[in-house]
Simulated scan of single mutants.
Amino acid sequence: MESFELELDKFWMHEVSTKAWGIQDSLNFAVPYIRDMGADITKIGIEPDFLPYEAALALKKHLPGTELVNCQRPLELLRSIKTSRELEMIKKASDDVVHSMLAVVAAHGPGATKHQLVSALAAEEIKRGLSYEYCLITAGTSLNRAPSDYVLKQGDIVSIDSGGQLGGYIGDLCRMAIVGEPDAEQEDLIAEVDAIQTAARGAIQAGVSGKEIYTAANAQIARSPNAKYVDFVAHGLGLVTHETPRLAPSGYPYDNPDAERPLEPGMVISVEAAIKHPRVGFIKLEDTLAIELDGSVKAYGDFGRGWTRFGG
């Protein structure tokens, strides 16, 4: 079936065979391919999560003397360093996700439902050449981020957190919008979130350990009047929304083996801070920072970060 994907230029591998059907057929191509690499091969790197058990048994049988080695970690580390082309893809995806959000907010207003906003966002992302991935959306004072038939009314605040994919690479950002004008408290709250984001962003540099992002963010959170309502996370971004470098402290769904490692050119980091205020609602910003190959740090999709007004 991959012959169609090959026609669509979906593969990054230099050599692709589309003549196999099932595991055994695939191994009939894979085993000779490995043998032709050289007789001195003693180890084969695998990602166990993606290798069928039947395939592992067959590799051991047909390639005696070789050892199957779990190489998920080194492959993740390799994937964490993007090429200039990969960085360009993530930048375009990020820019277009935010452009899509702003277009939806400009074209809607009171009376629109969360479902309608999400459908319009998907259409805007597709129009810009992205594959729509998801949208988490709140409205009013609710902290519920599921699309629903909730109808926007004057004064409602809306958080839009969406991912769109371009050539396999994710743009993942969150922006805020409001029906009408923000009051002083709402301005203060988004300023608090922005201050946390600014502190975290300032810690992102080549050669600095990943944990410093959390150190900087936590110091700013401690100064926030709404610290008890704050959520913050920093994570790698690329082919998936949470990839290496893994930086989140213990208690997150995955470990943080990269917290002590220095950040490197080619890495892309997402930083996201939210205040889940029980009375005002859900206020969040999510930004994408890339350490370019020359060591400079650039923010992708870095616009629309204040209160965007519905209806333009």
Rank of each mutant, 00 (worst) to 15 (best):
E125F: 03
E125H: 09
E125C: 11
E125M: 10
E125V: 07
I126K: 14
I126E: 15
I126T: 13
I126R: 12
I126N: 10
I126V: 09
I126F: 03
K127D: 08
K127C: 11
K127T: 12
K127N: 15
R128M: 04
R128P: 01
R128A: 04
R128C: 02
G129E: 01
G129I: 07
G129W: 03
G129P: 07
L130G: 01
L130K: 02
L130C: 09
S131D: 13
S131Q: 05
S131A: 04
Y132H: 05
Y132S: 05
Y132Q: 08
E133T: 06
E133Y: 04
E133D: 09
Y134K: 06
Y134P: 00
Y134L: 02
C135A: 04
C135P: 00
C135S: 11
C135I: 00
C135R: 02
C135F: 00
C135G: 03
L136Q: 11
L136N: 13
I137F: 07
I137Q: 02
T138K: 01
T138A: 13
T138Y: 01
T138Q: 02
T138S: 15
A139W: 00
A139S: 14
A139I: 10
G140V: 00
G140M: 11
G140L: 11
G140W: 06
G140D: 10
G140F: 02
G140T: 12
G140N: 11
T141F: 03
T141W: 05
T141V: 12
T141I: 09
S142W: 00
S142R: 04
S142L: 12
S142D: 14
S142K: 14
L143E: 02
L143G: 00
L143I: 08
L143F: 06
L143S: 02
N144V: 12
N144S: 07
N144M: 07
N144P: 02
N144D: 11
N144H: 09
N144G: 07
N144A: 13
R145W: 08
R145G: 05
R145S: 10
R145T: 13
R145M: 11
R145C: 10
A146V: 15
A146H: 14
A146T: 15
A146C: 13
A146Q: 15
A146W: 13
A146L: 10
P147I: 00
S148L: 07
S148P: 09
S148T: 06
S148I: 12
S148E: 14
S148A: 12
S148K: 13
S148V: 04
S148D: 13
D149S: 06
D149N: 09
D149K: 06
D149W: 03
D149I: 09
Y150P: 11
Y150I: 08
Y150K: 14
Y150F: 04
V151T: 15
V151H: 11
L152P: 00
L152R: 00
L152K: 15
K153S: 07
K153Y: 02
Q154V: 08
Q154E: 10
Q154N: 06
Q154C: 12
Q154K: 12
Q154D: 13
Q154H: 12
